[in-house]
Design a protein around this nucleic acid. Sequence first.
DNA 1: TTGTATGCGTTATCAT
DNA 2: ATGATAACGCATACAA
Lengths: 354, 354
Amino acid sequence: MDVKTTIYDIAKESGVSVTTVSRVLNNNPLVSDNTRRKVLDVVDKHQYTPNSIARAMTSKQTKTIGVILPDISNPYFSALFLEIERFTLEQQYSVILYNTLYGGSSHGVQSPFGEIRYLEMMRENCVDGVIVTGGQLDLSETPAEYVAALNNLARIMPVVVIGQHIAGCECLFLHRNLSGGVPALVMHLATLGHHRIGFIGGERGIRQTISRQRAYRQTMESLGLAIHPEDVVMSNFYTQDGYEAMSKLFENDSLPQAVIAINDNVAIGAIRAINDQGMRVPENIAIASCDMFAGSEFCTPRLTTLDQQNGYLGQLAIRMLMSAISDVGEGIRVKHTPQLVIRESCGAKLKDNH
Amino acid sequence: MDVKTTIYDIAKESGVSVTTVSRVLNNNPLVSDNTRRKVLDVVDKHQYTPNSIARAMTSKQTKTIGVILPDISNPYFSALFLEIERFTLEQQYSVILYNTLYGGSSHGVQSPFGEIRYLEMMRENCVDGVIVTGGQLDLSETPAEYVAALNNLARIMPVVVIGQHIAGCECLFLHRNLSGGVPALVMHLATLGHHRIGFIGGERGIRQTISRQRAYRQTMESLGLAIHPEDVVMSNFYTQDGYEAMSKLFENDSLPQAVIAINDNVAIGAIRAINDQGMRVPENIAIASCDMFAGSEFCTPRLTTLDQQNGYLGQLAIRMLMSAISDVGEGIRVKHTPQLVIRESCGAKLKDNH
DNA sequence: TTGTATGCGTTATCAT
DNA sequence: ATGATAACGCATACAA
């Protein structure tokens, strides 16, 4: 391996001091055009780029942010991440990504560490700021040690949490509208004539689950529709979990007319389970989902779902972080409103295709 | 923001020299148990962790690797990445991820830079090694400037390329078996009585596309089956592309009995298009795919596909890189063999579900 | 306009 | 067993 050329090599070969080279590199105007050109020639010749490590030593900035999330193979998180990364790059920052795999992944891959360890690693890596989402943050009762670890980190650098506010947590919060759109979804189903509506997916004790279920229950009640307790089955957030939850429903004596899934993956698994019973969606059972993932407009049937604007959320988070890194600012106040996307899986707009 | 405590703070408070603290931190045996304990107490009290930047200054190692890929929201790449990250973490390394978004993404997100820029950024960030896959690497004619940029980087640090070997490229290559399994797939279809078989998806000029199409053509020929030129439609690698490619097929005078898709996403899009025509899979047209993604066993119909062992591939890549970083080793020789996964979308194993 | 000297936090070399 | 000091590559305060 070649050794990287340093600012000293450039200085010597250009016949100037390191200071001058440094000035040229940082576009400091206090350099004559002549020397500037001379230096840049040598820089180009060696394809020299400053060592960002050494730079970080003096500047106290690594120009790197950290992102901690459970599972990048989950479409919800990858949509978020892609937007975060794009903005990060535009600001000349890089991003270190940690997948905690908390709550499991669809690949069976195991994480070697617990979530708290990832927070520590951020500190060790001297990133300039951190965005963290999912995992224990989404527990209705976030463990005290985890909050303590978050606060520990937040004392050193800006930390943006995408999720609901946690008492005693000193981070910046980007509040997610967890239940928004669910009432619209329930009403849409009711309007289509589905009066017995179930709810599947999501883990017990997770905020998304709780919040969306609550909205579902309240809307049902306000519409005067009864909820059959056996129509509500929790599991997790992946396709497999949708399959299992729906299969549970089939073990009951009777079925709901419509089922709301916690997200598109769960909905897809549910549809598979329904098909396995020789029934069809939406003819026999309608399916709707609370979180739209890329590609769900190509399912059969196309999924009626809620656009949670996940990419937009990522954009807000990174803007919040960047402003916290540069300014003294305490972040920005924002709002996002989940939008109902009506497609085929509930019976509206269904093409006659046979 | 609090300022991070340094080794000096610890030294002063412990009443020893920084050298001794450093020894304690690095488990150097040349410290008496007494001082060690004394120092560790202070370390614990302040929750001190060494500044990895300063450490990198002297050690010339950042304990960070870089991964460059087109789009982490693509299941193929996320499966790869998750395995890379797991092994990386086990080795106490972190990973910086760059999505080049070369070839487009499913989210419409645009990358601010060209691929070569990402290679430069790796150098600037002083990572210890790089894994790069996808993008221009997969062009049948990789541009000379891109190869030059790769070589530039490879002169400074180990670079592992997941893909086919490129003439004149000095990186370490993890050869992918691109066409393996395709003959088995074609034969499977032929055995089921499908004699007119089409092929859709994949971009023109991309190695995967070329390689798999060639295997498809050769196998067809060896089986004495004719290929109708209009049954082959290229597009890209996403669901939408599968939809469009299949729609093209419907514009022809007649249809193939079976269609091979370049991957599961394309297959899903194709199935959607077929359903939109009032036809069913596999009853009217059989669909098979060349690259299995997580969750495709929950499609309706379940996809018959090839397991490319993408996660395993990632594992091999990171092992190769790690051995190149530590040893003088020139990497490891490995083999992976895509496996045929027979499910429902071709008509075998189809449950009667209506 | 240019250069010298110092510091950033750690590890390593060399004393003691 | 412990400590003083140089070195890593860069930015910057201060001189010239």
